[in-house]
Design a protein around this nucleic acid. Structure first.
Length: 467
RNA sequence: GCCCCCAUCGUCUAGUGGCCUAGGACACCACCCUUUCAAGGUGGCGGCACGGGUUCGAAUCCCGUUGGGGGUGCCA
């Protein structure tokens, strides 16, 4: 009987969810779903310093945001490493009894001192045959056997390590608690994990873990080490230096779909002509064997490009609703819905919505803060004031529709022998305070005749004053 | 220091011995379109790290060099 494959994602709760973690979670998720297996979430909470209930919820929420839902039948967990403490100790005990592990009373200083005298580095196996037993302060070390350990890695092929380069590593601390390496392996065994897919930084630990699997009487799982994500300095993305919190990207207006799609293209290429591909397709096409071997730069520019693409291809109704959530509560939603189609295609991230349409929501009598550069440029031409007078005159009675408004201005501008690009500038600045914005005439139509004329006249006065 | 991994345009990548005068995407530049800004269209810039092999033939295979990264805890 062959069991269905079991993947696992094992973050430690540290307060924020790393984009690199999101990527490996996605890899595990895609594999588990495609193979009809299980995605096991295990919270590695052994380090008491970093263990808070709300952080676990944060992880679950972050996973849900990128489409890894705890309600999906392929999802299992969360399990907590701390709940398996007994199993960790039992495994250590077994290893000791089998002779695969031994106690050692050497302190870090003593180890270093001897290494110095020997001209070597690290622990030299000093306590291997001293027959020490458990005692406060004594650590339990694994007796690394002679030979070679070969890791069969699904993404990188065989990687071999000469065991003589691996020192007898610690299993149990002096206070009797298990270290990560042991806990991790025992948990994976307990949870019947068949595939360990994680970042490359764990590769050097893998021979130790594989030895543990074997010593504990189990066949090691399938290993897969995907390359790390790096910053512009080509260093592993770190919480300290880099912007890595998934939540932050979400808050800055990045769409989950865009983030997921972008993350998946790092180290892997979706089939087909485009890189913009829906999750379903990526899920069925993703293969660990196809993952690239070198570290990938997390490029905010490209992420942003993906995001803009996703925003533009959203159904208008969906976009309008999502965008409305970015606006102050007292801004008229209907008015926003009218302008929404014109800003949807101009938005790199959702967070820029409000500032693009704010001019439609300024209350009566609002004192517009003009962008001085825009103002100066728009009102510099000698025809500007005169043209504004003409516009004010015409707009008092013209039919109030974008088309009519445009036609009227076009009619006026011919008298000054200028193009629409120039002619619209003073009007735009007068009404919005800036030189760039959504299409002008559509904006005016939504703004309404009364308010438009008010702003036009106010600008006319201001221009006369500064003239 | 030691161990391990990696190496195609600035970036992410396609490429698995001949289809490669190396393809796409992001970025950048130019032009077109145009109601500003975007979007879109067209074109451009730009790369197989280096040196040896193997082969009729190498981005693709092997070795070395160089460069980068990761690991090296009684952290996870």
């Amino acid at each position: 009987m062959t069991e269905s494959p079991r993947f696992r994602f094992a973050p430690s709760p540290t307060g924020s969810f790393h984009v690199g973690g999101a990527r490996t979670a996605l890899h595990n998720w895609a594999m588990a779903r495609r193979l009809g297996g299980t995605f096991v979430l295990r919270i590695e909470d052994t380090d008491e310093a970093r263990n808070r209930p709300e952080w676990t919820q944060g992880i679950i929420d972050a996973l849900a945001w990128i489409g890894i839902s705890a309600d999906d039948p392929h999802f299992e967990g969360p399990h907590f490493q701390s709940e398996f403490a007994d199993a960790h100790i039992a495994a250590a005990q077994r290893l000791f009894e089998q002779g695969d592990a031994y106690y050692c009373d050497q302190t870090g200083d003593q180890i270093q001192e001897r290494a110095k005298q020997l001209g070597t580095s690290g622990y030299d196996g000093y306590s291997r045959d001293r027959g020490l037993g458990p005692a406060p302060g004594n650590v339990l070390r694994f007796r690394v056997p002679a030979g070679t350990t070969v890791i069969h890695d699904l993404v990188r092929g065989d990687v071999s390590f000469d065991n003589s380069t691996i020192e007898d590593f610690v299993l149990l601390r002096g206070n009797g608690t298990p270290v990560f390496l042991l806990a991790n392996v025992v948990d994976d065994i307990e949870m019947r994990i068949t595939h360990v897919v994680r970042a490359e930084e764990h590769l050097p630990n893998t021979p130790k873990q594989q030895m543990l699997w074997t010593a504990l009487g189990h066949t090691p799982p399938n290993w897969a080490h995907v390359p790390v994500l790096v910053n512009e300095q080509r260093k592993k993305l770190s919480k300290r230096r880099d912007k890595v919190a998934l939540e932050q990207y979400r808050d800055e207006g990045f769409l989950a779909d865009a983030m997921v799609n972008y993350l998946m293209t790092l180290g892997w290429t979706p089939p087909g002509a485009s890189e913009i591909v829906p999750w379903d397709e990526m899920e069925t096409a993703f293969r660990l064997e196809d993952v690239t071997l070198s570290p990938a730069f997390f490029d905010l520019k490209k992420l942003t490009a993906f995001n803009g693409d996703y925003i533009r291809s959203m159904p208008l109704a969906e976009f309008t609703e999502l965008a409305a959530a970015e606006l102050p509560a007292d801004w008229d939603r209907e008015r926003f819905a009218a302008i929404a189609p014109f800003i949807q295609e101009r938005l790199p991230t959702m967070s820029g919505v409000a500032e693009k349409v704010d001019f439609l929501f300024w209350p009566d009598g609002f004192d517009i803060e003009f962008d001085e550069k825009s103002w100066d440029k728009a009102f510099k031409p000698e025809w500007a004031l005169s043209l504004l007078d003409d516009v004010i005159g015409t707009y008092g009675s013209v039919e109030w529709s974008a088309d009519a408004l445009k036609a009227a201005l076009e009619d006026i501008m011919t008298r000054y022998e200028i193009k629409l690009g120039k002619a619209q500038a003073p009007v735009r600045v007068a009404v919005t305070g800036r030189s760039v914005g959504p299409p002008l005439f559509e904006s005016l139509e939504i703004l309404g005749r009364e308010e438009t004329l008010r702003r036009l006249s106010a600008a006319r006065e201001r221009a006369a004053l500064t003239d």
